[in-house]
Nucleic acid binder design. Structure first.
Length: 677
RNA sequence: GGCGAGAUAGCUCAGAUGGUUAGAGCGCAGGAUUCAUAAUCCUGAGGUCCCGGGUUCAAUUCCCGGUCUCGCUACCA
């Protein structure tokens, strides 16, 4: 492979509606930072780009809920996250944001270029419109009754109660969250990027030219390509975002998926006037660091955009990671189930490297992985303290004790000495080839093996015994141990920048470039080292217990008050109630509806007749166990065809907080068809 | 339901274009050692390589079918 002239590293733009947590770090920012630092210490031309993604509906919703403007929301999280990254040692060359003027300009220009060239399709469709607020309603702005679970505040894209994904037209009794009124369907025009047009070259570019991409990435792309790509809307009716730069497009903005990746470009423009060199010169190698939820955008959609524009380079690789769980549970911002970066930085001051190390050592590279505080403690105490910190400490202390802190000369090596010295170079190459292939866990393990090698070397040569009758030999031994230590400052630099900085101070040396790793003369004889300080401290049981308790407390709170009390629906007239004909009934037969996950076809004896009802309860009940069950049923619901079966009525179910469903059954013996009122 | 990824030692993961005893780190057990934050070093125990078929002289590896986990997607009360 030809060596690139320069590197452009991008890290997924974090969405500015919440703080950064360990899942973000392990999946995206720790690997991207390690990779960037690796290239830097190799002396490569590299820039690392990131910033806040500040548009999109969720931010407008959060703003509305908190009674502030979207700008205030993004200002808050942008500042918080920017500072957290800085404090954590994630060294972006720029951490920009998509509400910047330069981003508006860049995104508008990008759109206009494609627009003028006729790359978009214009299409009109009917969408919900709020006549009072005079605006179109994004899916999330519409709430109504969930057709699945009856939850009366389901969003137009998803019901948060039962997790079902919806479209706004599915909602029963939709209402606008803007004005509270009932929205009407109205025609609106949008622009679409015809992804299908790029299907051919995407297929070749990914499936043939990039077989080296990670299997999860490659497989996901193949799946999309095999399904066939569809045109995708690039605009939305919303007032928060980059306005569509076309006359007659008032009240329309660029869809956030279109504007966000352009954020990489605008951030680069903000960073340097030379930005085109990084984005348009084929000598640049672009790498996107992302999580698995972003694969399709970075491997298919953004490249299609860049290709359509024509003057940009395409990514060379997209090393997407899987997800990180926390103490056996999915990380969730809304459930507060996370280790937040800004909190970690406060609670473990000066210990950035411990988290960097843990997250890298068990990064979700090939499959989802679990973070536990116990493992965090073990990694710190058994590896950072016991292997790395300890080796460095004993070397420096021995040098202090025997040679008054001066590097002794290498005075004659035996075969074992030479083997050990040679091994340094071997390990360096292993670290490099692992990093080149984005295998960060393996790279870190090999880097730590250098410290292991040091410990073994000291144990085998026993300078504390040799000193008694062969001082010359001890000079050689400690020289070698010190050379290993100096090599550690190079090889560990990308992973543990804070500790390596401390170590350099102890050794009284400056940054040494990567290519020098493997050498046995990094420290010259007579060089004075400083008094050693400990690189890492042990983390006590109480500290991790405290963290676990904090999580347990969160869990408890979630269980006790898992939901906001559901608002009581608006009052209805007694007549409305009497319109409903609810009866007791018995389930006579139940079978699964083929090719569905949730549906059961029930045959009921309602006392009036026998009828068929389709119910979405298959996930909770085995058909064979509910036959003969006494239940209640709404019998005069308008019949509806579901999966080709006419459903005549609706079973009444109580839904518990965890989504579990319970039949509403009479507690005493009741004749089928008894009316409920 | 469709698609993608995964399933290997108590835990986290490597690995083999099929071929003697399947590896590493941590944890565990025993030993050595004391320069070092009781830290290190050595040795050892631990695996029906998810299950069932098939191909083969030989399968944990290839093929077919299934189970479970995660994700995307569809259908949907």
């Amino acid at each position: 492979m030809k060596k690139p002239d320069r590197h452009l590293i991008t890290s997924a733009l974090p969405y500015a509606n919440g703080p950064i947590h360990i899942g973000h770090l392990a999946g995206v920012y720790v690997p991207s930072d390690i990779y960037t630092r690796y290239l830097r210490i190799k002396g490569e031309d590299v820039i690392s780009i990131c910033g806040s993604d500040e548009h999109g509906v969720p931010i407008t919703l959060k703003a509305r809920k908190e009674g502030v403007t979207p700008q205030e929301i993004v200002d808050y999280y942008h500042a918080l996250n920017k500072k957290s990254f800085e404090d954590f040692g994630i060294e972006f060359d720029i951490y920009s944001r998509t509400s910047n003027k330069i981003h508006y300009e860049t995104a508008s220009e990008f759109f206009s270029t494609l627009y003028n060239r006729g790359e978009f399709i214009e299409k009109s469709s009917e969408q919900y419109y709020d006549t009072e607020a005079e605006c179109f309603l994004a899916d999330r702005y519409i709430i109504g009754t969930c057709p699945h679970c009856g939850h009366n505040a389901a969003y137009g894209d998803q019901c948060e109660n039962c997790g079902t994904s919806l479209s706004p037209t599915d909602l029963i009794k939709p209402r606008s969250t803007v004005s509270g009124t009932k929205p009407v369907m109205k025609e609106t025009k949008h622009w679409y990027l015809p992804l299908d047009k790029y299907q051919g070259w995407l297929r070749k570019w990914i499936l043939e030219d990039h077989k080296e991409w990670k299997t999860n990435v490659y497989g996901q792309c193949k799946s999309w390509l095999d399904h066939g790509l569809q045109p995708r809307a690039v605009s939305r009716d919303l007032d928060w975002g980059v306005p569509v730069p076309v006359s007659g497009a008032e009240g329309k903005v660029l869809y956030v998926w279109f504007d966000a990746p352009i954020g990489y470009i605008s951030a680069t423009r903000e960073l340097t006037d030379d930005w085109e060199k990084y984005w348009k010169d084929p000598g640049t190698r672009m790498i996107h660091f992302i999580g698995k939820d972003n694969i399709v955008f970075h491997c298919i959609i953004f490249p299609a955009m860049l290709k359509a524009e024509g003057s940009y380079i395409l990514p060379d690789n997209v090393p997407a990671n899987e997800f990180l769980n926390l103490e056996n549970d999915k990380i969730s911002t809304s459930r507060n189930w996370a280790v937040w970066l800004h909190e970690y930085l406060e609670e473990f001051p000066g210990e950035q490297d411990v988290l960097r190390y843990t997250l890298c050592a068990s990064a979700p590279e090939t499959k989802d992985n679990d973070f536990t505080w116990k493992e965090f403690q073990a990694r710190n105490n058994n590896e950072l303290v016991a292997i790395l910190g300890n080796f460095v400490n004993r070397t420096l202390i021995l040098t202090g004790n025997y040679f008054d802190g001066e590097v002794p000369p290498l005075s004659g090596t035996d075969e074992y000495d030479r083997e050990v010295l040679a091994e340094i170079g071997v390990l360096k190459d292993k670290v490099a080839s692992a990093l080149d292939a984005f295998r960060f866990r393996e790279a870190l393990k090999e880097a730590m093996n250098l410290a292991r090698l040091g410990n073994k070397y000291l144990a085998d040569t026993e300078p504390w015994i040799v000193i008694k009758n062969d001082r010359e030999k001890v000079k050689t031994i400690l020289n070698i141990a010190l050379q290993i230590t100096a090599n550690l400052t190079i090889i560990l630099d990308p992973f543990l920048p804070f500790s390596v900085k401390k170590l350099r101070e102890c050794l009284n040396i400056n940054v040494i470039q990567w290519d020098n790793a493997g050498r046995d003369d990094l420290l010259s004889p007579g060089h004075k080292i400083n008094k050693p300080g400990l690189l890492f401290r042990k983390i006590e049981d109480e500290e991790v217990e405290k963290q676990v308790n904090k999580l347990m407390e969160t869990k408890k709170q979630n269980e006790e008050a898992p939901k906001e009390a559901e608002p009581v629906k608006e009052n209805i007239a007694f007549d409305d109630f009497t319109k409903m004909d609810i009866r007791t009934a018995t389930i006579i037969d139940a079978t699964r509806v083929p090719k569905t996950k949730k549906l059961l076809e029930l045959t009921l004896d309602t006392g009036i007749d026998r009828r068929t009802v389709v119910a979405g309860i298959a996930e909770y009940f085995d058909p064979s166990t509910i036959k003969g069950k006494k239940i209640t049923v709404l019998v005069n619901l308008e019949p509806r065809k579901i999966k080709g079966i006419i459903s005549q009525g609706m079973i009444l179910m109580a839904e518990e907080d965890d989504g579990n469903l319970v039949f509403i059954s009479p507690t005493d013996e009741t004749k089928n068809g008894s009316r409920i009122r």
